[in-house]
Write a protein that binds this DNA or RNA. Structure first.
Lengths: 184, 184
DNA sequence: GGTTTTCCATACGCAACCGTATGGACGAGG
DNA sequence: CCTCGTCCATACGGTTGCGTATGGAAAACC
């Protein structure tokens, strides 16, 4: 933890995500972040005009990190459509991968700008999933249903905390994916 | 809007949910709620010891409203397992049915008590869905996978804002449910 | 080495909340 | 009619957070 002298804009954004994950949006406060970064508000208001500007920067980071980065990681693994869908499942089910999702989707219900961003993210993710399913199935409506089911599963896997008896979540998740990949 | 003289505890809770839906958890503030109810804080602190007590009352209401009430509405409609699952889908996809879900699930990540409540709700819902699928399929693992997929779909239908080209969400939702109800 | 730019500390005013304390209006019960 | 319990208004102190203003240290530049 070498006491560096200068903070960058990205450090503020990173600290904001950490605070969001730990304490919710209520924890993303200028003075609190300043303390964790070892500086004061003066630093913040030099890098950002506003608290709103910080939030905008967070949204930007989430938008690319939650689409392009994930897709790149999946594609880097290679394989055919089925392998990629399984890999997508593994990547997104990693713990802490979707820490900001809930807060942002909740916020999107009340803020038009945030809603637009979430829609963009959802469209990109669905397009990726849809393209993979298109390599496996012929019927467009079937493809759309399976894509929606898989995307919902990835979201639900993180948002739902139900127990599954003796079976673990990982096993259920795997079974569900295989069900979606199975030919009707 | 007859200016009533006395407020009940439930009115405060109802106003809290309205505020939560409109402005997020940040809008659930004592003095703000008092204004919308046409009273002052004095009233609040007579009905509740604390802001935390209000939140607890909200959680209680959500817990029963999001499980027993929904299940009762579905069962009241009657029909076999397949019909009930389709009805469950219709009931939960009504707008505004899950306004508190996102905020609560987000909160559950950081508060052990809230997490326990969400888990109870998820367990009850999953048990209901599972029981219905058990009437349709023989394999336990298959049942669990389909149950998780359906529950995820119901959640995802509300949380995901992706577009589906010419097909509307309602149509995709219906196709997805039929896919889950179809024999392998 | 002096000047300018970069980055941050300090101090201030202001608003929003929380929770408490206290008194008052109003109806119920005797 | 008087009292008592119910329900709320008002006033207060304390905290937290935002945004601004201003000065200062340290580095970059010439």
């Amino acid at each position: 933890m070498a006491r560096q002298r200068k903070r960058t804009r990205d450090e503020w954004v990173a600290a904001s995500f950490a605070a969001l994950a730990e304490g919710g949006i209520d924890a993303v406060r200028v003075e609190r972040l300043a303390r964790t970064l070892g500086v004061t508000k003066g630093s913040f208001y030099w890098h950002f005009t506003d608290r709103a500007a910080l939030v905008t920067a967070m949204l930007d980071a989430w938008e690319t990190g939650g689409t392009r980065d994930v897709i790149a990681r999946v594609d880097a693994h290679g394989g055919d459509a089925g392998a990629r869908l399984r890999q997508l499942c593994r990547v997104t089910s990693r713990d802490g991968e979707l820490t900001a999702e809930l807060a942002l989707r909740d916020w999107a219900r009340r803020d038009a700008d945030v809603a637009m961003r979430v829609q963009r993210v959802d469209d990109v993710r669905m397009a990726y999933i849809r393209a993979l399913f298109e390599e496996l199935f012929p019927n467009a409506e079937d493809i759309e249903a399976r894509s929606m089911l898989l995307y919902s599963l990835l979201i639900g896997n993180d948002f739902i905390v139900a127990r599954h008896g003796r079976r673990g979540r990982a096993r259920v998740l795997k079974d569900a994916v295989e069900l979606l990949l199975a030919q009707a």
